[in-house]
Design a binder for these strands. Structure first.
Length: 608
DNA sequence: GCCGTTTTCGGCCCGACTGTTTTCAGTCG
């Protein structure tokens, strides 16, 4: 089994926790945490990098010690230092740390004084009163821990962004209705950075100083609130019925830039930014930028002026990982990120002919409403019996209808199909039929349990087909519902490049597929990315914002995206045989090919 | 443990809130 970056990141995250237990220096703990978070955001696999003789010490935050431990883990499957730490500490400390409200000190106290190593053991100790009797504990603390344990059981982990965004927007509307004096109210945090899953919803807003705490008072009274975690003058945290935590902060209009920046994170980005600021004689917090020499505080109304004050260009929230975006910003090398407005077409749409819910005409109208120059209708192929896939005859009939409809609409209608990649890598229509289509999206919908080698070869075989334009939602994952299929992403992307096949960034918020790190690698390898919505309903075309967010997190500019090509060049692309069509993609002559300087300095972004 | 446009040694981000405390430790983000 290949070793994933996530696995290595978890190891170092655990090491940080164990060092914290041991009472080791916070800087060492932070070094492991930083390394773990960096590793989880890398676009390439560490295992592959070691095979390619890459020096891991070139990765920011990874030095000699962590590089050696990574190699040790890849070679032997274990890390001695980790095992020694585990051996030194009481059983169960890592388990107890997963309970909110229990940190390293409390976990150590509980395991040492009470010999408890399980969540169930803690519950028992709370009911028996032994937990509350510990030093610096008490009945209220014990009750809070019990509540946290109960809410852990009703909700597991993070919320997919689509769901979290809907909850955030509903909460913002409810607060606005009750507090008309709130001027700006935005989701910050991981939602604003468009991470695929959201830990909790951070809301940041502007209100007159004497009314700021009142917004928190309104929040705790909302009917959707299940539990109040924190309710102070500046900060309020609640848990909603959905099990999602909402943190609310209000600030002054003239210092809103600092507040929005502070609560947009990521934590690693902010740590790096504050280190950068310290080296230049400034200290940062949510209220402004303090000049350490004079003590003067600059209050900055928006993020653009905040970064500018530090001598940096605006760094888009999607880039604030804490990896290398600060270096790029200082070097003037930040990408001019792709935007929704750059998209010229949608290449993956379904109608009621297969498993969509709307007539073809409604889907065409929706594409026109997006301002597109072209669209491809891509209903399912015949193998998708469950999705009412089109037989050969129905596909021919549909093509005829689409050509007849063309004259009625101010958009180029392309004949397409989302054709099944069968278990052996063959496609679900005969070659002659596929050759008649303008756009073929080839996707896996079955036999998802194949081993990595089989699945990789299966998809590569589909890429080698001359008619396949795009590989659709390659991993087939459904966030928090279905795990991705196993494949070698590096091999897939290299094959995509060699065959001249584009990879889809599927915008459906439950898919977000490719994911950001894979899209990042695709861009690095020169693989065209197609941002599609896979809409099964006319209202879903707006979900492109999720796909655009993935592309932005992957540092994509307009020129990296296939469906930002203007119509004439897109037609030339699909009419040129693979793999030579890549030459058209790379020599594009539209304005997207020339990098313009970002002007998005002053305006606060639209939510999130 | 990592790192350098003052440094290869001596630094390392910052504040809110809670609960248990008579002044603050622990946790979180």
């Amino acid at each position: 089994m290949p070793v994933t970056n996530e696995e290595i990141a978890e190891l170092f995250e655990s090491m940080a926790t164990l060092l914290e237990m041991k009472g080791d220096t916070v800087f060492k703990i932070r070094a492991y945490q930083r390394a773990a978070r960096t590793i989880s955001h890398l676009s390439f696999s560490l295992e592959q990098a070691i095979r390619d003789d890459v020096d891991l010490k070139n990765i920011p935050g990874i030095g000699k010690a962590i590089s050696e431990k990574t190699q040790e883990y890849l070679e032997t499957g274990r890390v001695r230092a980790y095992e020694e730490l585990i051996g030194e500490l009481p059983d169960g400390v890592l388990t107890l740390m997963t309970i909110p409200g229990i940190g390293s000190k409390t976990a150590m106290l509980i395991t040492q004084e009470l010999g408890i190593s399980t969540v169930e053991g803690i519950e028992k100790a709370i009911h028996e009163g032994t937990l509350a009797a510990l030093p610096r504990m008490g009945q209220r603390t014990a009750d809070n821990i019990l509540r946290h344990i109960q809410s852990m059981r009703t909700k597991d982990g993070r919320t997919p962004i689509g769901q979290a965004l809907a909850v955030a927007e509903a909460t913002v509307s409810a607060l606005r209705a009750e507090c008309p004096y709130v001027e700006q109210l935005y989701p910050a945090g991981s939602l604003r950075r468009w991470e695929e899953t959201i830990g909790d919803i951070d809301l940041v807003g502007v209100a007159p100083e004497d009314l700021q705490s009142g917004v928190g008072d309104v929040l705790v009274e909302l009917p959707s609130v299940q539990e109040v975690l924190v309710h102070g003058p500046r900060k309020t945290s609640v848990v909603l019925e959905e099990g999602i935590q909402v943190d609310l902060r209000l600030g002054d209009a003239d210092a809103f830039g600092a507040m929005l920046q502070y609560f947009s994170g990521s934590q690693q980005h902010n740590i790096r930014l504050r280190e950068y600021a310290n080296r230049r004689g400034f200290s940062l917090n949510e209220y402004g930028i303090t000049n350490l020499a004079s003590g003067d505080v600059a209050r900055l109304p928006d993020e653009g002026s905040f970064y500018e004050y530090l001598g940096l260009p605006y760094i888009a929230p999607e880039l604030r990982i804490g990896l290398n975006e600060l270096d790029a910003a200082q070097a003037g090398a930040l990408p001019n990120l792709v935007t929704e407005a750059d998209l010229k077409g949608d290449l993956h749409l379904h109608s009621e002919w297969s498993d969509g819910r709307d007539p073809i005409e409604r889907m065409i109208e929706a594409a026109v409403e997006q301002g597109y120059q072209y669209m491809a209708l891509t209903d399912h192929s015949s193998g998708r019996g469950i999705a009412n896939g089109l037989s050969n005859e129905r596909l021919v009939e549909q093509m005829g209808i689409l050509r007849d409809l063309q004259s009625q609409y101010p958009i180029t209608i392309l004949c397409g199909s989302e054709v099944d990649i069968r278990a052996d890598g063959t496609l679900d229509y005969p070659d002659e039929l596929l050759a008649e289509l303008d756009v073929v999206v080839a996707s896996v919908h079955s036999a998802m349990g194949q081993d990595s080698d089989t699945m990789t070869q299966r998809i590569i075989r589909a890429m080698e087909h001359p008619s396949v334009t795009i590989i659709g939602h390659a991993s087939t994952r459904l966030l928090s519902r279905r795990q991705p299929v196993q494949f070698d992403i590096e091999a897939l992307l290299r094959a995509a490049r060699e065959t001249g096949t584009a990879m889809e960034v599927n915008s459906a918020p439950e898919r977000m597929d490719l994911k950001d790190t894979h899209a990042h690698r695709a861009r690095e390898l020169g693989v065209p990315l197609a941002i599609n919505t896979d809409s099964h309903h006319f209202t879903s075309l707006g979900q492109r914002r999720f796909g655009v967010a993935i592309a932005r997190r992957a540092w994509c500019e307009s020129r990296h995206i296939l469906n930002t090509l203007p119509l004439d060049q897109f037609l030339a692309y699909i009419r040129t045989p693979k793999p030579h069509r890549l030459e058209i993609f790379e020599s594009r002559t539209d304005s997207a090919a020339t990098v313009t300087t970002s002007t998005s300095f002053s305006n606060p972004p639209a939510a999130p």
